[in-house]
Structure formats: structure tokens, C-alpha cells
Amino acid sequence: STCSLIMKALFRRDGYLHRSITAAAPVAVSEAPCLPQDIMMEIFSLLEIPDLVRAGSVCSSWRAAYTSLCATAHSKLQQTPCLLYTSESIGDRAM
């Protein structure tokens, strides 16, 4: 849809913006292959929430993708806030 294309274009722009900022900071040098933020969001959207949260704290550019994804999911899905969550990836230690 046009809407999602616009959203993607925006995220892409933000992704580039973010990368240019991190590139300027010497501490942020990463040898990892860098994917555009909208693709990182696609990848993150396939993860269960505990995995998503951990992946979102790997580095600042992944965190930006995670934050955008959460914001999009909230505004687009309009789902009821999740009070209880269980998943296989949390295993026996889930509450």
C-alpha cells in the first residue's frame, strides 16, 4: 500500500541518518555487514518478544530498528497491551 511505502521510505531515511551519525562516532565502528533499518525491522518482526528485546540491545543501530518496530507495531496493530506473555524461547523460567 502507499502508506506502507511511505513508512518504509521514512524508516530507510532514518536508517541512513542513524548510520551517518554512528559512523561519525569512533566508538561505533563495526565490521558487521550493515543492513538498512527497514530490513532489520523485517528481521526483528519475525522474533518472539524475548528474542526481540535481546536483539534490540545488541548495538545502537539495532536498537533504533527495534524502537521503530515497536512504535510501528503499536500504531499499526492497535493491539491490546500485552499483560501476560509466554513463549517457547523463555522456557521453564517463564512466569
Binding site: T22, A25, V27, A28, V29, S30, E31, A32, R54, A55, S57, V58, C59, S60, W62
Partner: peptide, 13 residues
């Protein structure tokens, strides 16, 4: 997160 950084060779910034 540490294991993910290792797999993808990402530096913690």
C-alpha cells in the same frame, strides 16, 4: 546479546 554480537561480529557501541 553477547552471543548475538559474537555471531554477527558486532561491536557493542
Amino acid at each position: 546479546p553477547d552471543q548475538i554480537r559474537e555471531v554477527f561480529n558486532i561491536k557493542n557501541d
